[in-house]
Design a protein around this nucleic acid. Structure first.
Length: 351
DNA sequence: CCTGTGCTATCGCGTTGTCT
DNA sequence: AGACAACGCGATAGCACAGG
């Protein structure tokens, strides 16, 4: 008698979790009421697709949520599945496949061109391939004592990462204090064709008293070392960093046979601006350019735009506004960053 | 001008359910 | 059992936009 009652009780608990978890997921996604099992399974998938397109949430996160629910259920089911009376139920509702299969990302088995591309990632020559666990860094309680936040900006002789060179670089350590900024012109050893953008002419940079990049990098490394905390990390931020400044920086380091230190992390403020625009928390009608953000936040222009230090100072203030609006903390920024090695590796995987 | 990123629309394959 | 429709979802193309 007691045995029968315990089996009924376990069955009820399982049924509760089957319908409860699904109803939670359904209600969260599309306010679907509780429906019979098979219908729910399809509704979940449809509503999930709507959720993606409406909010542009990463698809993985939905899978994560769904799988979390399933895992929760599975764990509970697994704990009882040894009971022979419950095996059919467990197998039907997920433990051994069945409908649960629908939640799993399918492996790439399709034959369309390019889908089964082999991983073409090659090992970059000048980047230290040290794994940096950003999650671990972000979870460090003394993060503020570990991270040096540098805002940087570069002016270049053009747009081509291959043919053009950095002609000016400026940095600002957000911690402030003495010697918290660094700015210099760089002798590119080539003609500057885009002086109309930044006002820097060949005559200004192609001079003996202007350092070339190979001379500047050791000075730059020394400056960063002087600002860095013992055993800490340097978080570099720039506007459109991943598409512009960082590739130039990587190319210059590579060209001069220098390694970008593995404890340097890079983040892009343009992605924060996009996030803000998407969230609708702030109206950015005129785009997400540095100028648009400056006007949006009513930040006065100090010096001339498109000069490195002027843009760095502007971006420093914009960053504070963006992180405030998005309610981001330092750990949030660290988890959004990449090392130079990761950046190059990701780029090669995509191409 | 060049190049990277993000978004949107579209295509095509695999899975599932339904109908005959 | 087989045909078909509906759907999810990965991959891709095309576009806009950002940087100098």
């Amino acid at each position: 008698m007691v045995e029968i009652l315990s089996v009924i009780l376990i069955l009820l608990i399982q049924l509760f979790f089957i319908f409860r978890l699904e109803s939670i997921v359904c209600l969260m996604w599309y306010n679907y009421p509780l429906k019979p099992r098979l219908v729910i399974d399809q509704i979940q998938m449809r509503s999930a697709a709507i959720y993606f397109s409406m909010l542009q949430a990463p698809r993985g996160s939905i899978h994560g949520l769904a799988n979390f629910c399933w895992e929760s259920f599975r764990n509970i089911s697994c704990s009882h599945v040894n009971s022979s009376s419950l095996k059919p139920l467990a197998s039907k509702y997920g433990v051994q496949g069945g409908y649960r299969r629908r939640w799993i990302r399918r492996p790439m088995t399709t034959k369309t061109g390019g889908r089964n591309k082999t991983n073409q990632a090659a090992k970059p020559s000048n980047l230290v391939r040290k794994i940096v666990d950003k999650k671990m860094i972000a979870e460090n309680k003394d993060l503020a004592d570990l991270v040096t936040f540098i805002i940087y900006d570069t002016e270049t002789s053009g747009l081509s990462r291959k043919d053009d060179r950095i002609i000016e670089i400026a940095l600002q350590d957000l911690a402030g204090g003495e010697n918290s900024t660094f700015q210099t012109l760089v002798n590119p050893g080539c003609y500057v064709a885009n002086s109309h953008i930044h006002g820097i002419t060949s005559n200004m940079v192609c001079r003996r008293d202007v350092p070339r990049m190979e001379e500047l990098i050791p000075i730059l490394l020394q400056f960063i070392k002087s600002r860095q905390k013992p055993g800490g990390y340097v978080l570099w931020g720039a506007h459109n960093s991943f598409a512009f400044d960082l590739p130039f920086l990587i190319n210059e380091f590579s060209r001069c046979s220098y390694e970008i230190p593995p404890n340097w992390l890079f983040m892009d403020t343009i992605s924060l601006a996009r996030e803000l625009m998407k969230s609708g928390g702030s109206n950015l009608p005129s785009g997400i350019s540095l100028q648009a953000l400056r006007e949006h936040y009513k930040i006065p222009l100090v010096g001339s735009a498109h000069r490195a230090m002027s843009d760095v100072r502007t971006l420093s203030m914009i960053l504070q506004m963006l992180t405030f609006d998005l309610k981001l903390t330092l750990p949030n920024l660290v988890t959004r960053s990449f090392t130079a090695f990761e950046y190059v590796n990701n780029k090669r995987k995509k191409s």
